[in-house]
Write a protein that binds this DNA or RNA. Structure first.
Lengths: 266, 266
DNA sequence: CAGTGGTCTAGACCACACC
DNA sequence: GTGTGGTCTAGACCACTGT
């Protein structure tokens, strides 16, 4: 682990300390000056180490205030209520989050593979997201049995990521997702109130902890008329998200011109 | 423009010089030491300026070699042959790129809006991408009339981005894209050889130059069974791309585990 | 080898947030 | 104000690339 580069060494040490819970989530780290004294190095080098951790989403540095262990990485959730909520506020729509059901003791081979386990059972939480009263998104989340209490305690309109992180102390720092264009399955279409066949994104996502373990799996159906994906690349900056398509027509390309939509993602 | 921050000032100056063509594409900039003398500043500050430009994709810095004005930002093209080709190599598939047709003197209101023009005409280039002999992706690109020669000179299996950049000297540094799940339209389906209705991504993308002008517009249909989108978020790193789904079944989640798929994106 | 970029020092000073 | 992070210096030295 200990490279020859001082700032990476320091970053590794800090990362380990955070993993081991020496600095709880939301807690301030020692100041850059103090850290420099502790590690017997210069401020510039300490800053290099902190920059590494910030890049990985482990800490958040705020000018004039301090350096903090990151709160649950909601920004890793492309489908986050957070993101949607902000979008909604901007567009003056209201979003709600309704629990359909919780299942326990699920046995499924594919889940075992995804979570990298050889045996075990899972719990699921099905939710419906409504926009201006209309059900729009169906989402089902899975965790290992040992964390099932999180689903039991889950309340509508909460951030599942945040709750999971609070209850388990696990920091989610990575997410991977695949998106597939599909026709809404009959049962989902019925739940969402679609009478006719409807295209949708099927999103499958795994969330990965600081320890590199898969801790959460989500599947979501996002009907095409109401949700589109938008991405932006600017040099090495690279972002994408789901956005609500108010008009419901695929020809609305407003998102290209409405730079406001992107502000919070750069 | 000139902030109080030295490194941003320097970055602005360098950016302007590159815009004005003082350093042609692919050309080496003066060394960090030389730049530090020119701007009468320290190496650390010069490096700060260069880091800014690198972040924006304007320059490429190579350890032990030098600092270069970036070649056409192919990496901005999510659908780039480049990317696909690498993928293909890895999966031992062959991809080809066939020109269907070129149109000139196109008049279309939506294009005017996209390019931010009040009047003007456009040219289009339709292409088909085949994988292992099977047509898979339909793509149509548009440029303003003044650049129509690029389409005329375009040869199969070339990178359109690269050619455009070479011919016009315009550097593409930004791209925005929206993706919509659709049913393949009849004519496209016929072209691609699909008999039954088929879900697909409809991708609409604008490419933006260093001068913040829209210079290229692309529409592509990517049938669901063969192409899926995959994204990865790791802290502030954020990437996504289209990948070929060999199996053609939506239940193949191999991409989650196959970290190789992501190597070139981090 | 020479020339490039990358790291690091030991400070100084500036900008920002909070009391 | 005090305390935080952010920038900057004027070098030294290390690591990498190509001849």
């Amino acid at each position: 682990m200990s490279k020859k580069l001082r700032y990476l060494e320091i970053a590794d040490v800090l990362k380990k300390k955070i993993k081991q819970g020496e600095f709880p989530q939301g807690q301030a780290l020692p100041s850059q000056k103090e850290l420099s004294e502790i590690f017997n190095t210069s401020v510039m080098t300490t800053r290099g180490a902190l920059a590494e951790l910030e890049q990985e989403g482990i800490i958040t540095v705020i000018h004039g205030v301090g350096t903090f262990v990151s709160s649950p990485a909601i920004h890793n959730d492309t489908l986050s209520l957070q993101g949607f909520q902000n979008e909604m506020d901007r567009q003056k729509m209201s979003i709600t989050n309704e629990v359909i059901g919780v299942k326990h003791e699920i046995e499924q081979r594919e889940l075992l593979d995804l979570f990298g386990k050889r045996s075990g059972r899972f719990s699921s939480l099905s939710r419906l997201r409504t926009i201006d009263g209309k059900p729009v998104i169906y989402q089902c989340s899975y965790v290992e049995k040992q964390y099932s209490s999180v689903f039991d305690e889950y309340q509508a309109d909460q951030s599942l990521y945040q709750l999971f992180s609070q209850k388990t102390g696990i920091m989610v720092t990575q997410g991977r997702e695949i998106m597939i264009p599909v026709i809404l399955p009959d049962d989902i279409a019925k739940t969402l109130g679609f009478d006719e066949p409807c295209t949708a994104f099927l999103s499958k996502r795994v969330s990965i902890s600081l320890e590199e373990k898969v801790v959460l799996y989500d599947e979501a159906y996002l009907p095409g008329p109401y949700v589109i994906m938008a991405s932006r690349k600017h040099g090495k900056n690279n972002s994408f998200k789901y956005i609500i398509n108010q008009t419901g027509t695929i020809d609305s390309l407003d998102s290209f011109n409405d730079s406001d939509l992107w502000e919070d993602l750069i």
